[in-house]
Design a protein around this nucleic acid. Structure first.
Lengths: 128, 128
DNA sequence: TCCATGAGTTACGAATTGGTACCTACTGGT
DNA sequence: ACCAGTAGGTACCAATTCGTAACTCATGGA
């Protein structure tokens, strides 16, 4: 057994959600999935414009990875110029619920934190 | 606006789940949360032994991050030798459902893939 | 006396990552 | 003739990341 394994290795036998998280965790992945979900199937350039700031290289790489994981489908039309349309597969859509829940929790926490900060500020003001 | 921003920047205004995913995505994070969830509150060394392969440095860093995000509580007893016990906070437990769902999906996909491979193999054999 | 334990911290170093800039091929517009 | 757009691919480069090894402090045991 290789004692020296970077975290890239697949020592994940014990945790099935790890695989999915490794997938979702890519830097831009959530933006891409979010956009494909909310704006429907899109072409490369469209997606690139919407996921503001991403480089073509990253977008390509992420899309390839997502495609490899069967979360995204790539439809290539060999017209001139070529049209490449990306869309969520059924598997991609299976994540909708979970991602929705994560978004919900994220927003709730944000709101809670904001409320807490507001309460703190009010307390400070009252103490003066 | 800084055109040059690494992905570490907080350009995440548009995506509330991004924050959580960034949190969960740390290399060992899921193992840690999973262990804290299934084995209950644990001390540093215990956790380190269970999350096989993690270095003390990483574990510390991950735990600090999780603590900062209020997902994990750190109870320090200044005995000699010191006892530090980690446990999930309420927020940490709020992720149980989502993580559970992710694990479920992950396992389902794994099973589906395995079934698909088996079917392919059977087909190949039948074709001979 | 020396070692191990508990819970780390620090320094160093190699590998990965992700951005930038430049390249393709083809066509339509000016 | 030249530029822009489409969908990338490639080379290079700087920064970040993560692992390893060594150190801490205090005590109890062989």
């Amino acid at each position: 057994m290789d004692a020296k394994q970077t975290h890239t290795g697949k020592e994940s036998a014990s945790c099935p959600m790890d695989f999915i998280l490794r997938m979702l965790m890519g830097p831009w992945t959530t933006y891409i999935l979010y956009n494909l979900k909310t704006h429907g199937p899109q072409r490369f350039g469209e997606l690139k414009r919407r996921v503001a700031g991403i480089s073509a290289k990253m977008l390509t790489e992420r899309l390839r990875t997502l495609e490899g994981a069967s979360l995204v489908r790539r439809d290539y039309e060999a017209t001139i110029p070529p049209k490449v349309t990306y869309s969520l597969t059924q598997r991609g859509h299976e994540l909708d619920d979970v991602l929705g829940k994560l978004a919900e929790i994220g927003m709730r926490w944000e709101a809670e934190d904001a409320a807490l900060r507001a309460a703190r500020a009010a307390e400070l003001k009252a103490a003066e």
